[in-house]
Design a binder for these strands. Structure first.
Lengths: 257, 257
DNA sequence: CCAAAAGTGTTTGCGCTACACCCATGC
DNA sequence: GCATGGGTGTAGCGCAAACACTTTTGG
């Protein structure tokens, strides 16, 4: 190999791309922005942008997330520190994509991050995108059982379909063995609401009795607040907050794969 | 955010760093190279180098791995394609480290990869490093129960201790639910040899009877070759190759954590 | 009074654990 | 023949799956 010469290395552009997921209307959805410029002008893409010269990768991801959603990241391996813009979201590094040619203009290495957010009241305010939406993931991945057949797939710019697919797969497997599903819920939530998160992310139906026993029996997963709510109708349900536990032992079991 | 201008972006150096693990003398070991230049001259570091202008990230990692060990990578998400230099090893992307200041000379973003290799006959031939060694991981992480107390910790250059720690953690958790432990074994191996891999990586003792039943009962994990060996002494043991299965269901269970 | 969701108990079965014993080789 | 590791059978137990019923609200 050539000797290590600081003044002579191939220059790269480094960006962060964000897979932001939420659960809305009993379905898993991803945040997309419409591209205003070539290439892929007018097509949908993941939010993202350049990493700034003095900026940590996690900080760049947190900044982009707040610009797009108003959410302030916490948790994961990213600790951007201060400033609670809104209720927190989970943010973690996903993977890095650097194929030559993934961006036709130049050599770009993108460090993708995964964010999990609760259902936001406002669709998508602020941000630099000329348009933004929460798209159901079935319309992006071409999975089975996701809505009607006449809904066609939304093509994504660059290699973003691949990145999104990896992010969804990470989320689906990670809620098995961690308490991450609570990141999709508001600060206080019911067992039933948490169950509907699992059902939406996995695309399955779970037994309410066994689910209730499982989550309330796992130490540190849920902490009762003492309050109740009837916002889902029916009998009042206990409210919980997310407990301190991050790793679930034993894990939640996803039915027959 | 500033408009997207291809000719005006902050330039970064992009490197790959390698966490190469093997099992040797009943212990988990990592490949280290001695640095020939400042900074951290003379200290031990993970092998790695710059990504070349037209080169994929996985290809860069595979190239570095072959330069350092003579191994040809396969499997994982990295498919560097052709050229079987020696028996294959597992290679996958680990994580990306890009703190400003992690390299005092310039802004470097390093895409770390994890490689799992069988015990190599020759210590470490070839490569560009002035020195190389397989270091027991206990001497690098300061864990309990790893050898005598008078052995002191080896400090690593840059943030490589963190990267190594992340790589080891990935390997430890991934052999639970995948057939990856076979990547530490030669092409043909016995159930006992595979068990010693698990014992070395996890630092535990497993019940030979239950282990045997578990791995032979998991469809697609092991394929008998028909041959036997007595290289471990005692009664001849059946030889196996790794089967096609990558995900183990149900997973191997790591004793009391 | 009806619908809708919450919450609880029980049975059944599978898989993991823990244990003792015989087998086939090298020295 | 003895040491060494390989391979098998079994009993117990804990967890998860499957299932029915009561409770408490809103309309």
């Amino acid at each position: 190999m050539a000797p290590y010469d600081p003044s002579d290395f191939p220059p790269f552009a480094v960006t962060v791309d964000l897979v932001v997921l939420t659960v809305r209307h009993n379905g898993l959805r991803a945040l997309l922005v419409r591209r205003g410029e070539a290439p892929y002008q007018g097509q949908w893409a993941l939010p993202g942008g350049f990493v700034r010269p003095g900026e940590d990768l996690a900080a760049a991801a947190g900044r982009e997330l707040e610009e797009e959603t108003g959410l302030c990241a916490h948790d994961g391996e990213c600790e951007s520190g201060s400033g609670e813009a809104r209720h927190g979201a989970h943010l973690e590094q996903l993977a890095t994509y650097g194929d030559p040619g993934r961006d036709p203009r130049m050599r770009v290495v993108s460090v993708a991050h995964l964010a999990l957010a609760p259902d936001l009241p406002s669709p998508t305010a602020g941000g630099d995108a000329s348009g933004a939406r929460w798209a159901p993931v079935e319309r992006l991945l071409g999975e089975e059982g996701g809505g009607r057949d006449d809904e066609q797939l939304l093509p994504l710019a660059f290699d973003h379909a691949r990145i999104l697919s990896d992010g969804i797969e990470r989320a689906r497997s990670k809620i098995e063995y961690s308490s991450l599903a609570t990141a999709f819920c508001p600060a206080e939530f019911t067992v039933g609401e948490l169950r509907r998160v699992y059902e939406a992310v996995w695309g399955v139906v779970l037994d309410p009795r066994n689910f209730h026993r499982k989550v309330t029996g796992t130490p540190g997963f849920l902490v009762p607040t003492g309050g109740t709510t009837t916002r889902q109708g029916g009998r009042p349900a206990q409210l919980f907050r997310a407990g301190g536990a991050t790793l679930l032992n034993p894990p939640m079991l996803r039915p027959e794969m």
